[in-house]
Simulated assay, not measured.
Amino acid sequence: MSKLALVTGSSGGIGQSISEKLAESGFDLLLHYNANKQAAVSLSEKLADTYGVHTEIIQGDLSAPDGVQAVSASIGGRALDAVVLNSGQSFHGLVTDMSDEAVQDMVQLHVSSPFLLTRNLLPAMLLKKAGAIVAISSIWGETGASCEVLYSMTKGAQNLFVKALAKELAPSGIRVNAVSPGAVKTKMMGAFSQEEEEMIAEDIPMGRLAAPEEVADAVLFLLSEKASYITGQILSVNGGWHC
């Protein structure tokens, strides 16, 4: 019987790579997106055609208070074997440059929505006493970053959410971990110029940015039986940057 996984933010660079790795491993997929419907549809069709898995796209704005309700309603009471909390966006600028609305949206997207969505999905998983949850955090949630203070704060909150939830769910056979990438070659790096990106790469001991597939491999490992005794961990995938 096929396993079922949810990937939030599946239309982004990291989300697409995670979804493909899961499909390659035989997972049926619920592919969540917010605004980029065409990317989600294309991904869904590609994975179904290439790997023969069942795919379904789910829309919901997880930066809005009603987004969790929309996504939860689409999932219904289905018991998931894997949940990847990947939706996210960054804000580059000074604390004093952020509007109240931007602050609320970022906290909703990275903290409130992952918490509430997970809460809604857990009853069916608890009945099975099985499953794994992986959140996509960030290096800045571990070390903090100037000009990304709010993003750092919300990702730090995600890390503690993972550690606390892992302790609560371990007796029920559900594992909870996070992958914490450094700089990854995705559209999120579009805020930086080519020169700035090269400077970042020079500062990374391995001398380059991560490929989305490298983050996806870490996620797949944490969801697999090879990580059956690993829970409550923040797995850094950063090329030695800021270690």
Rank of each mutant, 00 (worst) to 15 (best):
K3S: 11
G12L: 03
G12W: 01
G12D: 12
G13V: 15
I14Y: 11
S17I: 11
G26Q: 01
F27E: 02
D28R: 01
L31F: 06
N34T: 04
N36V: 10
A39C: 05
K46C: 02
A48G: 02
A48C: 02
Y51C: 05
G52K: 07
G52P: 03
E56A: 09
I57L: 00
L62C: 08
L62Q: 03
S63F: 08
A64F: 05
P65N: 06
G67W: 11
V68E: 14
A70P: 04
V71A: 15
S74M: 08
R78M: 12
A79T: 08
V84L: 02
Q89W: 08
Q89D: 07
F91Y: 13
V95Q: 02
D97Y: 01
A102K: 12
V103D: 00
H110I: 11
S112N: 12
S112P: 01
P114D: 11
L117P: 13
R119D: 04
L122T: 12
P123D: 14
K128R: 15
A130F: 09
A130D: 08
G131K: 14
A132W: 02
I133N: 11
I136W: 04
G141V: 07
A145D: 04
S146C: 01
E148H: 10
S152N: 05
T154H: 02
G156M: 07
A157W: 04
A157S: 14
Q158T: 09
N159A: 11
A166Q: 09
A166G: 15
K167H: 06
G173F: 07
I174Q: 07
V176M: 12
N177C: 09
G182K: 14
A183L: 13
K185A: 15
K185H: 11
K187R: 15
K187H: 04
M188W: 03
G190I: 11
S193F: 02
E195C: 07
I200N: 00
I200S: 00
E202N: 09
D203A: 15
I204D: 03
P205E: 06
A211F: 08
E213W: 00
D217V: 14
S228G: 07
T231C: 08
G232A: 06
S236D: 09
W241Q: 10
H242Q: 13
